[in-house]
Structure formats: structure tokens, C-alpha cells
Simulated scan of single mutants.
Amino acid sequence: MLTHPGARAHVRGPGVVVGVGARRGVPADEVLGLVRAALAEAGGPEVLALATVDTKGREPGIVAAAGALGVPLETYAAERLAAVPVPHPSGRAREAVGTPSVAEAAALVRGGELLVPKRTSTGPGGGPGRATCAVARPG
């Protein structure tokens, strides 16, 4: 796991981890909009961290979203995420990054309960988006 320096977490009670997956070049506002909508769906919990696969750990849109939320960005190897059981595996994710799940697995990598299953952002003009996220309360 890698945690980006300079990020701060606001931990005041039970919090959540938001797993994020994205295609290359996804804008921060698309990631942030999706994350904020998923957090609202989960009841507005405190965010402990954003988490993703290590190959996306330098993706500018994801890094900027973590910074805007003021939380660390944790990254995990695809092999570690592939070992996490998830309800919605994806062949597309497996082909792209070597794990059948990025968002749900990254949210659940610490164990716990999935509060919001994988959601996909809406792209420009209402088309398919380039980001996914899921929200879990760590165990």
C-alpha cells in the first residue's frame, strides 16, 4: 500500500473507504462528482481514504480528487485486489489492470461492509463515464 504524503484525514468516528477506478485522463471533477454522489447515497459518512489499484495511483484526476477531499490516496497491487471477493466483478477491469475489480475491491481491501456497490460516472453529454467508485466501512 502507498499513501500519498501531505494528505490529511478527518477521522471523527466511523468512516469509510472509497474505492475508485478510472480510465486514463479522467478529469477530477468527474471523479469528485461520482464520489460525492456515492457518499450522499451512503448517508454522508466521514471519508478515511480513497483507494485504487497501484497503476492508477498517479492518475491526475484521482490524485486531485483525494486532495480536494483532504484524504490520503491508498494504492494496492492488482494481485492484492484480485484476492478480495466482490459482488460485481468485471472482465473489462481484469483485462485492463489485472484484477476483476478496482472500485469494490479497493473499498473492501481492509475488510468490512460494502455500503454502496460499484457506481459509474456520467460522462460529457450524458454518455458513459470514465470513473467508477464504491463505498465500504472497513472491518
Rank of each mutant, 00 (worst) to 15 (best):
G15E: 04
V71Q: 06
V35D: 03
E46D: 14
T55F: 09
P128W: 00
A93Y: 07
R92K: 12
V135R: 00
E79H: 12
T55P: 02
E59W: 15
A103F: 10
R94P: 00
R8S: 03
G111L: 13
A78K: 11
A107P: 08
A37F: 03
A37S: 08
G127E: 03
V35T: 06
P27T: 01
A105S: 11
L32G: 02
T75K: 09
L81R: 04
P60G: 07
P60Q: 08
L34G: 03
A134K: 00
R92S: 02
A42H: 12
V20H: 02
K56Y: 11
A64R: 15
V135T: 02
G67E: 10
R130L: 13
A78F: 05
A131W: 11
G6R: 11
E59P: 14
V31T: 02
L50Y: 03
E59T: 15
V97D: 06
V31Q: 07
Y76C: 08
G91M: 01
A66S: 15
V53G: 05
E30Y: 01
L39V: 07
T122H: 01
A78C: 15
L81F: 05
P138F: 11
E79D: 13
A37W: 08
P14S: 06
L73P: 02
I62C: 07
P72W: 14
R137A: 15
L32D: 02
G139M: 12
R119K: 11
G44N: 06
P89I: 01
R8Q: 02
V71W: 02
A40E: 13
L48V: 09
T120A: 07
G112K: 11
V86W: 10
P138H: 09
R23V: 04
V16H: 02
V116C: 10
A51I: 10
V109T: 06
A9C: 06
E74H: 13
G111P: 15
V63C: 14
A40D: 08
P14D: 06
G6S: 13
A107C: 11
P45T: 12
T75M: 14
A66C: 13
P27V: 03
R8G: 04
V86S: 09
K56W: 09
P89E: 07
A22P: 03
P117Q: 07
A82S: 12
V109R: 01
E104R: 11
P138W: 09
A106Q: 08
L48K: 06
G91W: 04
A134W: 00
L69I: 15
P60V: 14
E30A: 01
E30I: 00
A136M: 13
G6D: 10
A68Y: 05
G70H: 10
A83V: 06
V47R: 00
H4N: 05
V63Q: 14
P89L: 03
R110Q: 10
G33Q: 07
L108I: 13
A40Q: 09
R23G: 09
A7Y: 05
E30W: 02
D54W: 13
S121E: 12
V26P: 10
A38R: 01
P124H: 06
L81Q: 08
R80L: 15
G25W: 04
P117K: 09
A42C: 11
V102N: 00
V63Y: 15
V18R: 00
E95P: 05
V18C: 04
T120P: 05
G61H: 11
A131H: 13
V135C: 01
K56A: 02
